[in-house]
Design a protein around this nucleic acid. Structure first.
Lengths: 194, 194
DNA sequence: TCCTTATTTCGATACTCATCGAATCAATTA
DNA sequence: TAATTGATTCGATGAGTATCGAAATAAGGA
């Protein structure tokens, strides 16, 4: 089971921000650098607790510690925090995360449920979204760019289910096949979702 | 004890983002709208679990559901997510959060530890940051804009501690008093931190 | 009308983590 | 050098929540 990389920058970043007291610490450090003891006094928390929070903020590169005599003086990290959040939430970044996933998993599951071992359809799914998955699968048996007469279409679909009329109509309805002057041809890229 | 509003927009927002599977859901919805079952199939989670996550994302106004036949089709919320993150993390917003806090708490604690009930100093704190708190407190007994001769300075400081020479020197060192031609005057705003 | 199916809600369980106090470490002052 | 002090680490505890399965709900299809 793939569990993602052990450390995920975006996850660390947002987990660091997902706590009231850590947000307060950032607020205080946005006013001025402070020592651990000062922060603990203001927030009414124990120094050990504040040290823990500052540790997580440091890991996420949101704050930095500087040793001053025997104090640890924390300050906001120089890089603009807002910019970083924006980068991590850009649609490009979100889509990249999805790309690492197994997008075809659902489609495969549906096909597994509705196809026999010989590839024939058990039934035509009544549910719209599952039916669409099956129809996209059937479309892969038509070559792009080639024209088919209605008899040929039926012969191909018959290998999957006797009700070729319904399958043919639905495939046109889903925009997988187009028809003109008694001829059909496949359109779009129809394979398993990818 | 003030505990902040029961629902804090920033907190809800970042808590919603602080989970791997929720980030994945956002990634998938950034590609295209999906039904709960599809998302569950892709992520290898139960529909009930995905429904739970989508609920939290909806509360944070990151996604929206649309009823389509008997599916719930979820999609990214229209408002730009990045912009919202940027607004919530702007330094102004962070400082506003700090402003709601009791900034003087630490200073009061230090003063409580080093002042007797009659206001005199028990000792001069040896630790730099605590000594600074006490010196800022003493500075409030000097009027801004007025000039003091050294004798007057000593008379005031003597009400707090016999070692007036040390106090006077440290106050100059901290930039609380300035001295020229045998005269002293208070500079900066020195009251309790606020 | 009855049955199927997708979604949500609810209860239980396991895991994460915020918080504290005690112990340890590092650095300064007496 | 010994004693003080701020910070960090460690172990324990309690609160929050991610996850699942089962039950309840809603919406279509036979």
């Amino acid at each position: 089971m793939k569990a993602g990389p052990p450390d995920d920058e975006a996850l660390r970043f947002f987990q660091a921000l997902a706590d009231v007291n850590r947000l307060r610490l950032l607020g205080l450090l946005a006013l001025a650098p402070h020592s651990v003891e000062e922060l603990a006094g203001i927030l009414h928390l124990r120094p050990s607790t504040v040290s823990h929070h500052l540790g997580r903020l440091t890991e996420a590169e949101l704050v930095e510690a500087r040793a001053e005599s025997y104090y640890s003086v924390y300050a906001l990290a120089p890089g603009a925090i807002e910019t970083r959040a924006r980068r991590l939430l850009a649609r490009r970044a979100l889509r990249a995360r999805a790309a690492a996933l197994d997008l075809g998993a659902y489609d495969r599951k549906v096909l597994h449920d509705f196809l026999r071992s010989d590839g024939r359809l058990k039934t035509i799914p009544a549910q719209r979204r599952k039916r669409a998955v099956v129809l996209r699968h059937l479309a892969t048996f038509f070559r792009l760019g080639r024209r088919y007469r209605e008899g040929e279409v039926n012969r191909i679909l018959k290998r999957f289910h006797p009700d070729t009329a319904t399958l043919r109509r639905e495939m046109v309805g889903e925009g997988l096949l187009q028809r003109q002057a008694g001829q059909y041809w496949r359109v779009g890229n129809a394979g398993a979702t990818n």
